[in-house]
Write a protein that binds this DNA or RNA. Sequence first.
DNA 1: TATTGTTATACTCTATAACTATA
DNA 2: TATAGTTATAGAGTATAACAATA
Lengths: 147, 147
Amino acid sequence: MSEDLPKPMRLEDLIGYNLRRASLVDLQGATAALERAGTRVIPMCVLSTVVERPGVTSAEVCRLLGMQRANMVPILAELEAKGLVFREADPLDQRVQKIFPTQDGLEQGMQWLTLLADHETKLLSRFSDRERQDLLRLLSKLWQEAD
Amino acid sequence: MSEDLPKPMRLEDLIGYNLRRASLVDLQGATAALERAGTRVIPMCVLSTVVERPGVTSAEVCRLLGMQRANMVPILAELEAKGLVFREADPLDQRVQKIFPTQDGLEQGMQWLTLLADHETKLLSRFSDRERQDLLRLLSKLWQEAD
DNA sequence: TATTGTTATACTCTATAACTATA
DNA sequence: TATAGTTATAGAGTATAACAATA
């Protein structure tokens, strides 16, 4: 009885359009939440990665976060200047510097993560637990399985 | 028996992190798909809006797409220079210009939308129809209901 | 040859302030 | 006073090429 429309014919039917709008809404709230703590989203992501993987190298962080090495330089310099991470020469490979969180870095990393978790609780207040789980799973599957 | 962990403690547990990674993966593919047609994502979104709402004003497109008025100016100039849209003074309000798609604009708008739909079919090839529907609904709910 | 960390640079997108013409 | 369209400008994020040191 109903005709089949095989392709989306409107902008709002595109997953990508809704992805970008949703990501932008989240980013605004996340930026505001972190601004009060004196940081931004990208340094927060880098610090979290260092906290979760102490001894990681700059190039590894770049691969994990999908960033260019050149753009990591000022971010790490900023975190180091704030006393949140420090670098150590790797005796096994003179090219690389292993990055570790300081005690302050561990505490700030936890606090920044909590700020974002609180922001997300507000953002998703009308979502059921099941909807949050589904959304997280589908988004993760989307970018992790991308070739 | 299991402990309850009320807040995410890792970067990858944040919806926002997965939103941004997923949006970026999609954006790369969408940009590549549109590059072959000689355009970019934002002009495509603007043209689609004009096609779906002929006679819309610049300020209305900005509100619909969440853009600043200042940033719309060069986009509309580009679409106009390509002969895809044209503007008409509104006799009822001398401040506004109503924007309409040309015949070429209608055809290009359809073609650009098809390019993105094809890109999404590839991107979501491992997603079931149900998963695509769920993802679309959850993303739309996230940004449309945001206050 | 390939990789790491780095510098310099350019480009896109986004944000803000200020202007004019009109409502 | 508020809004529409515009200009100029600054900022954040991203991308590429090239370099020296090391593997």
